[in-house]
Amino acid sequence: MTARTAPAALVEDVAGVVENVPGVAFLKPGLADRLRSSLSRPGEGTGTGRGPIAGVRLTPGPDGADGWHVDVQVVALRRTRAVDVARAVRSAVEEHLAARLTGRPVSTVTVTVTGRV
């Protein structure tokens, strides 16, 4: 994995982990997802059959520190407590990245529940 493709691959990995956490309805859609017409071509974006992922953002650690800051925005199921979903998502992302990025620390993981359905 090159430095240029690492963030895109990591974003997809994190999105897959988040979508499998109990209580998560879906990742927060971005503006492009809301405006995309039914005629748009699937697979635009990262080249893996999936469009850009708006609910997951990876940025380099603060002040050039080694690692990543991960920001996740999800919509939770109404029957769950938002705090429990946020904690479960954070834990799942931290565990996944610790296993995936051995030797490269994750600076922080922030989870925001932006809505409920």
Rank of each mutant, 00 (worst) to 15 (best):
R34C: 13
V56N: 05
D13W: 03
R57E: 09
P60R: 03
G16W: 11
A86G: 10
W68L: 01
L27G: 04
G49E: 12
A15Y: 02
L27M: 08
E44T: 14
I53S: 11
R36L: 10
G61T: 00
G67K: 01
R41L: 11
D63M: 04
S38A: 14
I53E: 10
V74G: 11
S37L: 14
A86K: 07
G64D: 11
D13V: 06
I53Q: 12
D84N: 13
A82N: 11
A32C: 04
P52F: 08
G55W: 03
G23K: 11
H69E: 01
L27Q: 04
V75D: 07
A76S: 13
V11E: 12
D84P: 03
A54D: 14
G61K: 00
S38Q: 10
V83M: 00
A65C: 13
L27V: 03
V24G: 11
L39S: 15
V11S: 08
R57P: 07
E12M: 09
A9R: 07
S38D: 15
E12T: 10
T46W: 08
G64E: 09
L39Q: 15
G64Y: 14
P62Q: 00
A88V: 07
D84C: 07
V85M: 03
R41H: 08
R87T: 09
H69N: 13
S37Q: 13
F26P: 00
P29S: 02
E19L: 15
V11K: 11
L31G: 03
V83N: 03
D71C: 05
V83T: 12
V18Q: 04
V17T: 14
D63W: 04
A65H: 15
D13Q: 02
A32H: 10
V70L: 04
G16H: 06
D33A: 15
V18N: 06
P42H: 09
V14Q: 01
S40Y: 09
T48L: 06
G64C: 13
A32D: 12
G51Q: 13
D66C: 01
T59H: 04
G55F: 00
P22Q: 10
D66R: 08
L39T: 15
A82Q: 12
G43A: 07
T46F: 15
A76F: 05
D33I: 11
V74N: 08
D33Q: 14
N20G: 13
P60F: 02
I53H: 13
I53G: 09
G16P: 05
S40W: 14
E12W: 04
P42A: 06
R78W: 12
A88I: 05
V24Q: 07
R87F: 05
W68Y: 15
V85E: 03
V83H: 06
V72A: 02
T48D: 10
G47C: 11
D84Q: 10
G61E: 00
V70E: 01
D13E: 02
V17Q: 08
S40M: 09
G43F: 13
A9V: 08
T48W: 06
A82T: 15
G55M: 00
A65K: 14
P29R: 09
T59W: 02
G23A: 04
T80F: 12
V21H: 12
D66Y: 01
H69F: 04
D63A: 06
V56S: 04
A54Q: 10
E12K: 04
P42L: 05
E12C: 06
D13F: 06
V11D: 07
D84G: 10
A32W: 13
A25N: 01
